[in-house]
């Protein structure tokens, strides 16, 4: 839920990266953190296990500076993707203004991706939001992997809602900012 604070002249929006374990959500935020103008970002917070898997969430506050008199901020979050953390994902989704669904393009992950999207649909209904009328985009990640499925197959089976989608190799930064630009604009258009 975007917060527009007229008194302090601030606008805050929350964007959540969703998807299966190991698909590259944290990698997206890490790349943004290290590549964006340092003035435009705050500290990145990661609550992770000893093996670098997200346990609770990652959090990266971005600051666009003052736009038309309003300090505009985007707060990026990732959910923990492992199946075990279903309830935690629901907690992180609360109050989201936009969602990036990160897909692991590898054929052996196909089934898991399908289940994760179905779970997201259910979770959105639980928090009273309709994904059909909500800032929502797809990222086809891990395009460099030998077993990556063709994009048209991913589009057909994983993008039933025909939302905008972006190919990515998050560990090399490819597609990371294109994805972020698209979801940010989408969120602003919905304000």
């Amino acid at each position: 839920m975007a917060l527009i604070n007229i008194a302090t002249h601030e606008i805050h929006c929350k964007i959540v990266y969703y998807g299966i374990g190991y698909c590259g959500k944290t990698t997206n935020l890490q790349y943004v953190f290290k590549s964006i103008n340092p003035k435009a970002r705050g500290e990145m917070l990661s609550i992770a296990t000893e093996t670098e898997r997200t346990l609770f969430f990652d959090f990266l506050p971005l600051d666009l500076g003052t736009v038309h008199g309003f300090r505009t901020r985007f707060h990026l979050y990732t959910v923990p993707g492992q199946v075990l953390y279903e309830r935690t994902r629901l907690a992180v989704l609360s109050g989201a203004d936009g969602i990036v669904f990160v897909v692991d393009s590898q054929a052996e992950k196909f089934e898991e991706n399908v289940q994760s999207i179905a779970e997201l649909e259910v979770n959105m209904r639980r928090i009273g939001k309709d994904l059909g009328n909500f800032p929502f985009i797809m990222q086809w990640n891990k395009r460099d992997m030998p077993s990556a499925l063709p994009v048209n197959v991913l589009e057909r089976y994983l993008n039933r809602r025909r939302v905008p989608s972006f190919e990515a190799i998050a560990c090399d930064g490819k597609g990371v900012f294109a994805t972020l630009r698209a979801i940010s604009k989408n969120v602003m258009a919905h304000l």
């Binding site: 666009l64 500076g65 736009v67 038309h68 309003f70 505009t72 604009k185």
Partner: peptide, 19 residues
């Protein structure tokens, strides 16, 4: 607050910063 000018400025800022 959220008028046409604001929206187009935000879009420009997004293009400028998110790269």
């Amino acid at each position: 607050v959220i008028n046409v000018q604001f929206r187009s400025s935000v879009e420009d800022t997004i293009d400028l910063l998110f790269r």
